[in-house]
């Protein structure tokens, strides 16, 4: 709509067109540095994908490096570490998808609070963890759950603890622990979007339901939930497209000798291959494989969304 009014205005002012062209050059010149920034920091790294097709070793220039075609990609299938890493990535992603309804539930609960100050308190406090880094989360978790942390000290005080429990070094439970930590950090933040959706529900619907004698639980079930379901679906689809991008920082920070095997996700593996082992080419190949699958997933999910909702998600 805006473009049509603008072009009408443009027709009226045709006599100014040479002036406009001069302005255009000026604007283009002004926009150039920003295009360059985007190019330099987002597009140029893509050229690095070329390393995946060579047997590159740091120190030897790429021109003297043998071309290896798709060998480095084939290597993935014979790499014994690839299976467990994919397993970790998918398991952690699925667990976080499994907890996806919790922020929605939380938002409904918050929206049902009538006292204004309590509502504000809950919202402010629950969003706070979103704004701290994973390093701080690690520091907090460490102070709570390490063998000399708050939880063990408290159990000891009560005389309940035998040997102190090492929550962060528990091999069997590490997926659960990490999923709960992620939930702790993100629940308040993820709820905001649902709260926004709930606020925008027409209040007449609630009034009508009340007149019909519906209680709280029934209004939630028949009005609130269906109204925020589309938001839930969109977020769910997005998280499916992020299946292979289980949080890098979280697992890097929480990795320790006891649990490293079980939380080495794809991104972490790419980093370890590259900087620890020094195999740039293979690391790039694995990274590329991940990026491409993610993009394909995003498009697929977008297509599905268009087909069933009549609306894309990106």
């Amino acid at each position: 709509m805006e473009t049509t009014t603008a072009s009408q205005a443009g027709k009226k002012r045709r006599f100014k067109s040479s002036h406009r062209r001069k302005d255009g050059y000026k604007l283009l010149l002004a926009a150039l540095p920003f295009v360059l920034i985007a190019f330099a920091f987002s597009y140029v790294p893509l050229f690095g994908w070329i390393y995946a097709f060579f047997d590159y070793h740091p120190g030897i220039p790429l021109s003297k490096t043998p071309f290896s075609g798709l060998d480095r990609f084939r290597e993935m299938f014979s790499d014994p570490r690839m299976g467990p890493v994919l397993m970790n990535t998918l398991a952690l992603s699925f667990l976080s998808i499994l907890t996806a309804p919790i922020p929605m539930l939380f938002a409904i609960m918050v929206s049902e609070v009538r006292s204004g100050w309590f509502k504000r308190l809950v919202q402010t406090v629950s969003t706070l963890p979103h704004y701290i880094s994973w390093i701080i989360v690690y520091a907090l978790a460490f102070s709570m759950f390490s063998t000399e942390g708050a939880v063990n000290a408290f159990l000891m005080k009560l005389g309940l603890g035998g040997a102190p429990v090492d929550v962060l070094g528990n091999y069997e439970r590490v997926w659960t622990v990490q999923t709960l930590l992620l939930l702790w950090k993100s629940v308040g933040w993820s709820a905001i979007i649902y709260l926004a959706a709930i606020v925008s529900i027409d209040s007449e619907q609630y009034d009508a339901a009340k007149v019909d004698g519906a209680g709280r639980r029934r209004t939630i079930w028949h009005i609130t939930l269906p109204s925020i379901m589309p938001t839930f679906i969109v977020l769910l689809l997005l998280s499916i497209s992020n299946l292979l991008s289980a949080g890098f920082e979280q697992y890097l920070v929480f990795s320790n000798v006891m649990v490293a095997d079980r939380i080495e996700v794809l991104d972490l593996y790419v980093y370890r291959l590259g900087l620890v082992t020094g195999d740039y080419s293979y690391s790039t190949a694995v990274g590329m494989f991940k990026s491409i699958i993610s993009i394909v997933l995003l498009f697929t999910v977008n297509l599905l969304s268009k087909k069933f909702r009549g609306q894309g998600i990106v």
Partner: peptide, 19 residues
């Protein structure tokens, strides 16, 4: 578009590092 599209892709760790 040229700038917006950068939201959706990521070259990966080693390409970023080397760049």
């Amino acid at each position: 578009r040229f700038v917006l599209v950068t939201m959706y892709f990521n070259a990966g760790f080693i390409p970023w590092y080397l760049t």
